[in-house]
């Protein structure tokens, strides 16, 4: 009987490992991307969003920060509007996926006026700023949603294809301040 219990315990442990590996995140398989339509809006179950504007620059002037931010590459600045419906959204995990398979996380330097944690019933306006080689900008897709580095059960992401288009690189731009308001 004790041998049967030992075998049963071993099988139970193996079953737990198998179940946990079944939930292992791989970065894309467990996510659902909701792409923007012709009107520019992307709609996921808990939130909707649109790209208000996009610019490229080599230096950024940040609100209330004395020194400009500079780069040997290019800054991609995307202004977003995100409306949250029924579940608070952190809105702090934004990624730019390039056509050649690279993935860039948004910068977290001070003063970039990025989107903030947004409660249900609120709309946030803010910037997503990325830094990347200029040649990787064309055809990049912006993804707004939960980052998948750990155990993943489910997530939904807003996605915007070719978010920058064909833009000239400016020497310097000023960033608009982020803000939130009750959704009208």
């Amino acid at each position: 009987m004790s041998r049967l219990r030992a075998i049963g315990a071993l099988l139970a442990c193996l079953l737990v490992v198998a179940v946990l590996n079944g939930f292992r995140g791989d970065g894309t398989a467990e996510s659902r991307d909701y792409y923007a339509g012709a009107d520019g809006w992307a709609h996921a179950p808990s939130m909707s969003g649109r790209v208000v504007g996009a610019r490229l620059a080599r230096s950024l002037v940040r609100p209330e920060v004395a020194d400009p931010l500079t780069t040997p590459a290019v800054f991609v600045v995307i202004e977003l509007e995100v409306r949250v419906r029924d579940r608070v959204q952190p809105l702090q995990s934004l990624t730019l996926l390039t056509a050649d398979g690279h993935s860039y996380r948004q910068l977290d330097d001070s003063g970039l006026s990025e989107l903030s944690l947004t409660q249900a019933g609120w709309t946030s306006y803010g910037n997503a700023v990325f830094e990347m080689p200029a040649e990787r900008v064309p055809g990049a897709t912006l993804v707004v949603g939960a980052q998948t580095d750990m155990l993943v059960i489910y997530r939904a992401r807003l996605a915007f294809r070719d978010v920058v288009g064909d833009l000239a690189v400016l020497d310097r731009i000023e960033l608009a301040e982020a803000r939130s308001e009750v959704t009208r």
Binding site: T71, P72, A73, S103, Y104, D108, S110, E131, M132
Partner: peptide, 12 residues
């Protein structure tokens, strides 16, 4: 020395 450190692909 000047900003928040992150190692972005392709940028020294």
């Amino acid at each position: 020395a000047t900003r928040s450190l992150a190692f972005q692909p392709g940028i020294p």
